[in-house]
């Protein structure tokens, strides 16, 4: 695979960012980040990281070393793998230690791979410079509104500076950090995609203005994704009867957005632990469990029914598919038992 030279070259091989690339290049999303620092009304944290239905059992989220082993295994199966994304089940930046260890391991072992991540943006100003140092090329920031009265209807609270903040106070801090983070990333040359969840009656009329602002600030792509709010998800929106938009409503809002950020229309709302080409998910091959019915909410975060499962156990497969030459190297860790995430195993 050729060395990537410019951001544009790299973007052209990123299946989520380039409308053509998604037919040719593969991507892998790694679930290494269980914690989150905000609440979204379309998210049920109960299922976003719970691999098993038994309450309180440690969710099998990948450790950084397991994540590296998984990358190695998937690369064998999909030589066209170009992108490794850190997406959920919580917020990548709410787990800075795991994120940084994972990115460093992958970057050292596979310098040709693009690293991308998704975040709600709250911790971006604190982490953005470090992300660039780690070689992260693409960042997706979910920004659903820039008006605190709208944001507060989507995000009821944030955890910020040792307190749970609510309402308008929380909304203002979140928006300020999202925009400050966007500015830092753009200034450092990172390709930034903004995701916005379209929620009829809440932020639909506000999104064109948001589109204009994020375009002006240098966001490359704007991905407007429809709210998924099936009541079975158990989310606030699902249980309170907030409907998602119709396809024509999504199209109308996208048409009303006139900023320079490219509208993304090929997003499959892939699962956070997806493997493979967009639209052709090979997740099951790398999992010892049946493919679950969960769907990503379009932000790399999952909104899932109670049958949710994640992919940690595919490391059995990972160990079996590694080529001999790749050991002892950093992949020797793949030979061990899959372990549940714990800080001591980082």
């Amino acid at each position: 695979m050729p060395k990537h030279t410019t951001i544009d070259d790299r973007t052209a091989t990123h299946p989520c960012y380039d409308g053509e690339a998604h037919q040719k290049y593969a991507r892998l999303h790694l679930a290494v980040a269980p914690a989150c620092n905000i609440q979204c009304h379309y998210c049920n944290r109960k299922y976003s990281c719970a691999n098993e239905s038994r309450p309180g059992v440690v969710a099998e989220v990948l450790t950084p070393k397991q994540a590296l082993a998984r990358v190695a295994a998937v690369k064998v199966r999909f030589p066209q793998l170009t992108v490794v994304g850190i997406a959920g089940p919580g917020d990548a930046l709410a787990n800075p230690d795991r994120l940084i260890t994972t990115c460093s391991l992958i970057r050292d072992a596979f310098p040709e791979l693009m690293l991308c991540l998704s975040t709600n943006g709250l911790a971006l100003p604190a982490q953005a410079a470090r992300l660039v140092d780690l070689g992260v090329h693409h960042v997706t920031v979910t920004i659903n509104a820039l008006d605190p009265t709208v944001t507060a209807r989507i995000h009821p609270w944030i955890f910020w500076e040792h307190r749970r903040r609510r309402g308008l106070e929380a909304a203002r801090i979140l928006i300020d950090n999202q925009l400050a983070g966007l500015d830092i990333l753009v200034a450092k040359g990172v390709a930034v995609k903004i995701n916005s969840v379209l929620i009829p009656g809440v932020n639909d009329t506000h999104l064109p203005e948001l589109n204009e602002v994020i375009s002006r600030r240098g966001a490359r792509i704007h991905n407007i994704v429809p709210l998924l709010s099936d009541p079975s998800f158990g989310t606030y929106h699902g249980l309170m009867g907030q409907r998602g938009p119709t396809p024509s409503e999504v199209a109308a809002v996208r048409r009303a957005c006139r900023g320079t950020a490219i509208q993304m229309t090929h997003c499959r709302q892939c699962r956070a632990d997806a493997v493979g080409l967009l639209g052709a998910d090979h997740h099951a091959e790398f999992s010892t469990r049946h493919p679950p019915a969960e769907r990503c909410d379009g932000m790399g975060h999952l909104t899932v029914p109670p049958t949710f499962s994640t992919t940690a156990t595919m490391l059995f497969h990972a160990a079996g598919t590694l080529p001999a030459r790749s050991t002892p190297g950093p992949f020797a860790v793949a030979g061990g038992e899959p372990r549940v995430l714990s800080p001591s195993s980082l």
């Binding site: 269980p34 914690a35 989150c36 620092n37 944290r45 109960k46 976003s48 990281c49 719970a50 309450p55 309180g56 059992v57 440690v58 969710a59 989220v61 919580g90 709410a94 787990n95 230690d97 955890f159 040792h162 549940v340 995430l341 714990s342 800080p343």
Partner: peptide
């Protein structure tokens, strides 16, 4: 028991009082 083991609380404790034990 309603804990979903998201690990968010553990690093925030100023006294390192939160531990993993038996998967919980």
């Amino acid at each position: 028991a309603t804990c979903v083991t998201c690990w968010a609380c553990l690093p925030e404790c100023p006294n390192d009082a939160i531990h993993e034990r038996g998967g919980h």
